[in-house]
Structure formats: C-alpha cells, structure tokens
Computed example of a mutant assay.
Amino acid sequence: MYVLVYTMHDREAILLEILRVGARGQVLKSDNASELIAAAVELPSAHEPYFVSGISQMLL
C-alpha cells in the first residue's frame, strides 16, 4: 500500500513527520492538479517516493 499525502502544509517539520510515519509522497494543495494526478499514477508503478519539486528541495 502506498500513502500519498495531499496537504496545504509545506513546513519541513511536517514533511519529516510524513516521512517518519511511512508516507511515500506528498502533493501540496497549491500545486497544479496535474501534479496530483501524476503522483497518483506514478507512485505505485515507480516504487520510489513522489514529492513535488518544492518539497524535494527541502529534502536536499
């Protein structure tokens, strides 16, 4: 099972908590709807975490 979090929160502390509890991806509500669709389609097939670019920058 893959958990994708759809949220308005983009703070680093929340992102770390999302990762800690096992979510495999996060899409922000402020992102384009195509990001949500892409995440829902790609997450199960890619077998890799899915984070929008702004969130990915925080992880680096």
Score class of each variant (00 low, 15 high):
residue 9 H to N: 09
residue 55 I to K: 01
residue 22 G to W: 04
residue 26 Q to F: 04
residue 4 L to A: 05
residue 9 H to A: 08
residue 51 F to M: 06
residue 46 A to C: 01
residue 26 Q to A: 09
residue 57 Q to E: 13
residue 28 L to G: 00
residue 49 P to N: 08
residue 1 M to T: 12
residue 11 R to F: 11
residue 44 P to D: 05
residue 51 F to R: 04
residue 30 S to A: 10
residue 57 Q to T: 03
residue 7 T to E: 04
residue 39 A to V: 02
residue 41 V to M: 06
residue 52 V to E: 03
residue 23 A to L: 05
residue 18 I to P: 00
residue 11 R to M: 09
residue 22 G to V: 07
residue 18 I to K: 02
residue 2 Y to K: 11
residue 5 V to I: 14
residue 24 R to H: 13
residue 53 S to Y: 10
residue 9 H to R: 12
residue 28 L to I: 04
residue 21 V to K: 05
residue 19 L to Q: 12
residue 49 P to W: 02
residue 47 H to D: 12
residue 9 H to P: 00
residue 45 S to E: 14
residue 57 Q to Y: 10
residue 43 L to E: 01
residue 2 Y to H: 11
residue 8 M to K: 10
residue 8 M to A: 13
residue 39 A to N: 03
residue 28 L to H: 01
residue 58 M to F: 04
residue 7 T to A: 04
residue 34 S to P: 00
residue 3 V to D: 07
residue 50 Y to F: 13
residue 1 M to A: 07
residue 12 E to S: 11
residue 39 A to E: 03
residue 13 A to M: 10
residue 23 A to T: 01
residue 30 S to R: 08
residue 54 G to P: 05
residue 50 Y to Q: 06
residue 52 V to Q: 02
residue 40 A to L: 12
residue 35 E to T: 05
residue 45 S to D: 08
residue 28 L to K: 02
residue 41 V to W: 03
residue 58 M to H: 07
residue 14 I to Y: 15
residue 42 E to D: 12
residue 20 R to A: 13
residue 18 I to L: 02
residue 12 E to C: 03
residue 56 S to F: 09
residue 9 H to G: 04
residue 15 L to G: 06
residue 18 I to V: 13
residue 53 S to M: 08
residue 40 A to R: 03
residue 7 T to S: 05
residue 40 A to E: 00
residue 10 D to C: 00
residue 45 S to P: 00
residue 11 R to S: 13
residue 11 R to E: 15
residue 27 V to P: 03
residue 58 M to A: 07
residue 22 G to M: 05
residue 34 S to Q: 11
residue 56 S to T: 12
residue 54 G to S: 12
residue 48 E to R: 14
residue 59 L to A: 02
residue 9 H to E: 05
residue 14 I to P: 07
residue 33 A to M: 09
residue 52 V to M: 09
residue 10 D to E: 06
residue 12 E to K: 14
residue 18 I to H: 05
residue 30 S to E: 02
residue 54 G to M: 08
residue 4 L to W: 02
residue 16 L to G: 08
residue 42 E to H: 07
residue 17 E to V: 02
residue 22 G to S: 06
residue 4 L to E: 04
residue 22 G to H: 02
residue 7 T to R: 03
residue 50 Y to W: 08
residue 14 I to M: 13
residue 14 I to W: 15
residue 47 H to F: 09
residue 12 E to G: 03
residue 42 E to K: 06
residue 40 A to I: 04
residue 5 V to A: 10
